[in-house]
Design a protein around this nucleic acid. Structure first.
Lengths: 302, 302
DNA sequence: TATCGGATTATAGCCTCCTGAAAAACAATC
DNA sequence: GATTGTTTTTCAGGAGGCTATAATCCGATA
C-alpha cells in the first residue's frame, strides 16, 4: 500500500493518459519504457502499476507484466479527469497567502514552518521555488523578503508588455526554425478548444493550453533564453490568473488568433506571424487592463 | 575575533567602498545607516566595524562610534582592491567544473557533497542557486540534471540576442522614467573607467560595472520583468566570461558607448538612446561571436 | 533476447539536539 | 533625541542516526 509521492504522481499521470485515450486499451506497459519517459528507475514505475491494478485500470499477467484493462468504467474515467484540479499544493497556498496580504513582507523560516507545519527541507524547497519564480529572496542575515512583483494589478500589464518585447522577437531570431509537427499539434489543440473545449475543459487546463502555445513557439527560436524568460513570467501569471474568473468569450477570440498565427507560420510567413503575435498580445493587454482595473477595485485595498 | 561570514562580507564591501573613495576619509559610519543599506541588523555591522578597526581602516571613539581613518596607507588600499578576486566561492567552482566537463550530466547530491566536502544544507543551497540560474534541475527521483544551457559557445550569442530584444524595449516602456541621480552615478563610474580604471581595476569589477550599467537602465523601465530577466542572463554570462581573458581595448569602446547613451538620455532623447543601445549590443555580439569562436576552438573538445 | 520480478545497495528526506550568529529589546552616552 | 553599547531572544545551519524509497544488480521467465 505504500504509495510514495513519486509513484502516485506517476500513476496519476498514467491514469490521465489512459483516460484521455493517449494510451490505448489492452496495450502492454513496459516498465523500462515508462521509466525512461519519466526519467526515473523502474522501482517507482512498478509501484505505480501495482496501484493502478488495484483500481482496475491495469491488469497484471505474472511474468509478462501489466496491460491496460480492456475496458474502463466510465465513472472511473471521469473521476480521473477531475482529479487534476485537486492538486492545489503547498506552493499555491503559500503564493495565495502572499497575494492576499496574509503574510508580512519579511518572514523568517521559523514562522513559515509553524504556519504551514512543514519540515525544514520541504520549506526550503518551497522558498527556493518562490525565489526561482522571482517573488522571494533570502535576506543576507536571517529571514526572507517577499517581493510585491506579482501582487499588484499592474503586474498583469507588465507581464504582457514584457511578452510583447520577447515573443515577436523570438520568432525573428536567426536560429528560429519551424517545427511542423509541433505546429500541427498546436493547431489540433486550439481547434479542439474552439470545437467546444472552451466550455467543457477545466479552467486550469485552458490556461495551460494557452501558455503551452506561446511557449512552443518560443522554443522554436532555438534560443533557450527566450523560452525560459517566457516560462518564468507564465508561471507567475498563472499564480495570479488562478484567482480570476476565466472569460470564455475572450478565450474563443484567443484561439482564433492562435490559429491564425499557426496558419501564417505554416505558410512560412514568419514576419507576418511575428507582427500578428505582437498585436495579439497587445489586444490581450488592453483587455487585461480593464479586467485588472476591475480586479483591483474589487480585490485590493486602498 | 569571531568574524562570521556575513560580517566579513560586509567588512570587505565597506573596505572596497573606502578604498575606491566612495566613502570619504574621516567620515562617521553610523551603524544603523549601514545596517539599513545592507538590510541586516546592527549586530553584524558592528562586528565588521571592529574587524576594520583592527586593520586600521576605521578608528573607534568610545560612545561616539566608528570613523574612517584620516589616512590609509597605500599598501593597505591596494591589498583591499586585490582582495575581490579571491572571492571565488563554491558556486563558481561548481559552475566551472560543469563548464569544463568535470562533472557528469546526472549527479547525485551525495557525489557532490563528497566532491566538494559540503554539508547537506550548503549543498542544497548551491543546487537551489544553480536551479535558479537555470542550469540545474532536480530529477523526479534521486539526483540532479545539469543542463548544457551555458556550456556552448553559442550561448554567448544567444544571450546577446536576447538582450537586444529586451534592453532597447525596456527603454521604450510607457512606465520608463529617467532617474537623474542614477544616471549621474552611472556617468561617473564610466568616466572613472575611461580615465584609467580600465587598466587598473580587477577584471571582475570591470565586468560588474558593465552589468550594473545595463541593469540600472532596465530598472528605469519600472517593469520588474525586464530587470529580472536581464539580471538573470547577466548572472549566467558572468559564469562564462569569468573564464575568458578580458579585452581592455574593447572595454574602452564600450565605456564610450555607455557615455553616449547617458548623454542621449540626459537630453531626453529616449528613442535615440534605445536605438543606440541596440546597436551597442549588436556590435558587442559581432565582436563576441569572434571571441566565442576562438574560445570554442581552444577550449572545447570536438 | 527482451522483459519481468525479487533482492541489494544507495540516496536523500526527516528528526532531534546543539550552537554560532543575527535580530530585537533595552540601557547608556553624547 | 539620535546614536552607541549591552543583553536577551530568536533564528537557522550543522551533525548524526533513522527510514522510506529510488536506483541498481542479478536471476528467472516467456
Amino acid at each position: 500500500m505504500s504509495t510514495s509521492e513519486l509513484s502516485s504522481r506517476i500513476s496519476a499521470r498514467l491514469a490521465q493518459d489512459i483516460a484521455v485515450g493517449e494510451i490505448a486499451c489492452g496495450a502492454h506497459l513496459r516498465a523500462q519504457e515508462v521509466a525512461d519517459r519519466y526519467k526515473v528507475s523502474r522501482t517507482p514505475i512498478r509501484e505505480a502499476f501495482a496501484a493502478l491494478e488495484e483500481q482496475g485500470i491495469l491488469r497484471r499477467f505474472p511474468n509478462r507484466g501489466y496491460f491496460v484493462a480492456d475496458s474502463i468504467p466510465q465513472n472511473i474515467i471521469s473521476e480521473i479527469k477531475e482529479a487534476v484540479d485537486v492538486a492545489r499544493d503547498e506552493y499555491q497556498i503559500f503564493a495565495e497567502d502572499w497575494l492576499t496580504d496574509q503574510l508580512p513582507e519579511i518572514v523568517t523560516e521559523q514562522a513559515l514552518r509553524q504556519r504551514y507545519n512543514m519540515t525544514k527541507a520541504r520549506l526550503s524547497d518551497l522558498l527556493a521555488r518562490a525565489a526561482r519564480e522571482g517573488w522571494a529572496e533570502r535576506k543576507e542575515g536571517y529571514g526572507w523578503r517577499l517581493l510585491p512583483v506579482a501582487k499588484t494589478a499592474e503586474a498583469f500589464d507588465e507581464i504582457y508588455r514584457f511578452r510583447m518585447a520577447i515573443e515577436p522577437a523570438a520568432m525573428l531570431e536567426p536560429s528560429f526554425k519551424l517545427n511542423k509537427e509541433a505546429l500541427a499539434s498546436l493547431r489540433r489543440t486550439q481547434e479542439r478548444m474552439l470545437e467546444g473545449g472552451v466550455n467543457s475543459l477545466p479552467a486550469e487546463k485552458l490556461l495551460d493550453n494557452g501558455a503551452t502555445f506561446h511557449e512552443e513557439l518560443a522554443r522554436m527560436s532555438n534560443n533557450p533564453f527566450f523560452l525560459s524568460a517566457l516560462e518564468r513570467v507564465n508561471r507567475m501569471r498563472r499564480l495570479m490568473e488562478y484567482r480570476t474568473k476565466i472569460d470564455r468569450q475572450r478565450l474563443t477570440e484567443q484561439c482564433t488568433d492562435h490559429l491564425e498565427i499557426v496558419s501564417l507560420l505554416e505558410q512560412g510567413e514568419v514576419l507576418e506571424a511575428s507582427f500578428f503575435m505582437r498585436r495579439h498580445l497587445s489586444s490581450a493587454l488592453r483587455r487585461k487592463a480593464r479586467t485588472a482595473k476591475f480586479w483591483s477595485m474589487t480585490h485590493q485595498k486602498d
